[in-house]
Write a protein that binds this DNA or RNA. Sequence first.
DNA 1: TTTTTTCATGACACCGGTGTCACAATAAGG
DNA 2: CCTTATTGTGACACCGGTGTCATGAAAAAA
Lengths: 337, 337
Amino acid sequence: MKKVTINSVASYAGVSKKTVSRVLNNEPNVSAATREKVLAVFKELDYTPNPIARGLAQNRSFIIGCIYDNPSKSYITRVQTGALAACQENNYNLLIHPCELRGDALINNIEQLLQSSRLDGLVLTPPFCDFGELVDFLKSKKIPYARVASAILDDDSISVTSNDEQGAFEITEHLINLGHTSIAFIKGHPDHSATEQRFKGYRRALTTHGIEFNERLVEEGNFSYHSGVDSARSILDLSPRPTAVFASNDYMAAAVLKLATQRNLRVPDDISIAGFDNAPIARHIWPGLTTIAQPVEEMTKQAVTQLITHIIEPQESPYKVILEAKLITRESTAAVK
Amino acid sequence: MKKVTINSVASYAGVSKKTVSRVLNNEPNVSAATREKVLAVFKELDYTPNPIARGLAQNRSFIIGCIYDNPSKSYITRVQTGALAACQENNYNLLIHPCELRGDALINNIEQLLQSSRLDGLVLTPPFCDFGELVDFLKSKKIPYARVASAILDDDSISVTSNDEQGAFEITEHLINLGHTSIAFIKGHPDHSATEQRFKGYRRALTTHGIEFNERLVEEGNFSYHSGVDSARSILDLSPRPTAVFASNDYMAAAVLKLATQRNLRVPDDISIAGFDNAPIARHIWPGLTTIAQPVEEMTKQAVTQLITHIIEPQESPYKVILEAKLITRESTAAVK
DNA sequence: TTTTTTCATGACACCGGTGTCACAATAAGG
DNA sequence: CCTTATTGTGACACCGGTGTCATGAAAAAA
């Protein structure tokens, strides 16, 4: 099995390389007859263009990078799934780049990544989508990028997000409608803009329903299960104990559930628990967690599709989409007794 | 910021392209003085070779692909982490390729993947590592590959695995030592060789301790949480009810725990539950799951490192490693009352 | 010292595509 | 019927590296 190059196709079809290239790229100014002929030879010789050669000639890599730093494996795989779907549709590849760095070290790391991989573009997932320094750096280097799930919308970049504030509002309202007035809240990691957004939604729901905000009911978490355990301890030690807990993500909510169960509290009879994200764990534990589902795959897919579109043909107007988050009620929340 | 190519470096240093190339690749036959000079220019001009051009010249892509089909997100990310670690050390990139196909469709899909991405090699994770047809196809195409966590060892390929049979033996023995004699077992997906291995370990432990194997205690699962729920239902409906359940992975074990809890059974007082894999969920639920931890990252990292080594310089002797699995005891197992 | 071998280096083609431009053939305009 | 556009096509350089081979200089052997 010898390899089939554009040269073999050209000579076999009796045309020049360039003409074959034109057919490959759907360029105009090729007669229908010639196009047919060349396409037939593609089939016959089972020809696939070499993306590396193409990349060299066009100074492209056909690879986009996805940067993340997230304790939730399910979130990461959902992001990857969405990004891959978009890549496959456009004959792009996806390079994954987990990264725990911050500040200058982050910038250096990304610079090196770009240097060594010649990525055509970057997808920034939380928390990177909200790092001004990083975004400015990419802008200065003229590297196309798209932001997923960012709260910052007043800029000129591609951004697809979901409404965290509204989601948090709705789930808090759900608890309030069940009669809860003492609702503890566990914050997420301060680097993530979602942390602020979810907190805002929580407070807005309280305000809307005339419930006074109580700072003592708020705990600082960081989205990790472990931080949820610490926060849960503080909350369950409060007296009087709140009748509900809204954790900024499902892992922390699961931690609250675990600790409550260990202390022989019945959920939801003694205490209601709500999470955020609809991670797999939300339905893998008993009772299942009431939570907010976001279309993570869809967000990422749209962002990457738009990013690739932009790479191929730079757009002037930035693509901005906000998708809906949806309340999922399970067994972990119930009316206050 | 103009781009720095090998040509600019060459003219700046007053040597030829080829000499620069020699320095880049640590080739011999370059005088120390010249090497120093060129290296200094690398620094000064902040030069990074273009991997695409390099790939074209050497007919390599510096990308390896990782194929998987696994319901466990945590397993996938662990595999990725290990693979990425190895890639980064060798200036390789990782292309992820989730794939749910089987049979001819699988082969076609992989063929297309190879055609369009020009991967230098492939990492096969379960269940693909055990698909003879796929392996034969790769062999016939002379695509280097490495197998991770496969039970098949009597071939001439790169393979890094852990001892599933022994792990299953140990955890079953752990239950037996706690006084359990009626231990239900939930099998995994039949495509995975681990399914067979873990079942063997379970049976060997029974035999070793003189416990008669009872087919009615064995349920067919497929590693998914959902299948665990179905299996759990059958097992908990048995009369007499087994005093312990060993599920082939943690998701199914979590399902058993959920169902048992829903039925007001106390774990481990009324029934002990053991899993396999040490997935995050094993410690995120209450009670935490007794399970077997495998060095997934390490396995994958070794496999990929070896794969890249092989790509650079084909080895004659296949690399075979079996790593140890480790019993982790948590609260879900206890002595039978 | 002369011959042979080894070493350091560069010229040049090549990897497999794409961009630019020239050019002939055809179509449209006056 | 003779310009002037328009269209289809190919020659050729180029993208940024690496492989092959020739060559002159230095080192080793005779």
